[in-house]
């Protein structure tokens, strides 16, 4: 069984709410954050963890592709099965609504990108009870439409109106995949702080590849940190990532 054993003991994100909705722009790294967060929560061991892939806009690179690994960790995965696993159809399993309403353990919802992807939440919005969920905006300052403060505020606005739900926090996840540097992640955190000041949403946590986020520059960061292991890999990365 894979266990996260941080080399450095950062303050890991913890939540008192039972539903964590992970939303953001395309390419913000939502799915990678969602699967890693699920791993961390199961590792913390407090409650049963389930993850539902609600991505109805992307045909590839969705969290459902990590479902085998997640299941082996004891995480319940709620995804379309059979041929529909591969479909790009707006399929919302009845189990998702059930899991939201039952509120047993922690439920992570991995939602598709942009306001278009977040629209799926509006069909479920009546099942959400206020103060029982966190809705987190995953921010990547290296994506064209969230590269500056205005772009990020527009993204918040667009997603809130299409999802009919309000954000409760921000995840700073600025990256350039394998080309990410410490400076890129620090600049991203600064952008997240600016967005936080203007939107009144707290920075819930900072996330990034472990090799970046464990550099000394992040030792005194005043927000929780979630180190990421890449679980959603491209085919030519598969062997390298299996260690």
């Amino acid at each position: 069984m894979l266990v996260i054993s941080p080399v450095k003991q950062h303050r890991l994100p913890t939540f008192s709410k039972s539903i964590l909705i992970i939303v953001g722009g395309y390419g913000s790294g939502k799915s990678e954050v969602a699967v890693n967060l699920s791993r961390q929560l199961v590792n913390a061991g407090s409650a049963p963890v389930a993850i539902a892939d609600l991505d109805i806009v992307n045909p590839y690179f969705r969290s459902r592709e990590a479902s085998e690994q997640l299941t082996s960790l004891g995480i319940r995965t709620i995804n379309p099965t059979g041929g529909q696993h591969y479909a790009d159809l707006p399929i919302i399993l009845p189990e998702v609504k059930g899991a939201i309403e039952q509120r047993q353990g922690v439920l992570v919802l991995d939602v598709g990108g942009d306001d278009v992807g977040a629209r799926v939440l509006s069909s479920l919005s009546e099942s959400f009870i206020e103060d029982t969920y966190e809705m987190l905006l995953v921010l990547n300052g290296n994506r064209p439409f969230t590269a500056d403060l205005d772009g990020c505020l527009k993204m918040i606005n667009d997603i809130e109106s299409s999802s009919r739900l309000k954000f409760t926090g921000i995840v700073s996840n600025t990256h350039l995949l394998e080309e990410t540097t410490v400076q890129i992640a620090l600049d991203g955190l600064e952008l997240a702080r600016q967005v936080s000041r203007r939107s009144d949403l707290p920075v819930a946590f900072l996330s990034g590849l472990r090799e970046i986020i464990e550099c000394d520059e992040f030792d005194n960061v005043d927000v929780p940190i979630l180190p990421l292991e890449r679980l959603l890999l491209k085919p030519w990365e598969s062997s390298a990532g299996d260690e």
Binding site: N140, R143, P144, A147, H175, L176, E179
Partner: peptide, 14 residues
């Protein structure tokens, strides 16, 4: 500076 883009978006911008 470099940006992170999906192939389809990058093709459109190019």
């Amino acid at each position: 500076a470099k940006v992170l883009m999906k192939g389809n978006e990058a093709i459109a911008e190019a």
